[in-house]
Amino acid sequence: MNLQILLSIAEPGLNHFLIVSALLFSLGVMAVLSKRNVIMVLMGVELILNSANINLIAFSRFTALSLEGQMMGLFVVILAAAEAAVALAIVLNIYNRFNTINLDKISTMKG
């Protein structure tokens, strides 16, 4: 039953967008967990934020959430921009100090 829903080439409904966003989220988690380059981890975080945004906007299209969902998505984009700017400044600072951006080698504060 569920498999049929997944496999049917149907007109895209709410579930289709939610599945795309779930797959995008899992790819973002994969990038965050398996990469040791700080910038790759940041790109994974951007993927995760985008998947959350797809969810918000899909719900705003298909449910009674209406435009409120798009408004939340707008604020997510604003926060993502601020986060990226500050995070990359921190990465540049780390690179100046440690001369590496490998997460496993930045371990000064490790007990």
Binding site: G13, N15, S26, M30, F62
Partner: peptide
């Protein structure tokens, strides 16, 4: 990540959304 995707997709497909 595969577990996360499987759980999320299962939850999304089985949930009864109030679609208008």
């Amino acid at each position: 990540s595969v577990t996360a995707a499987a759980v999320l997709i299962y939850a999304f497909v089985t949930a009864d959304w109030a679609i208008t």
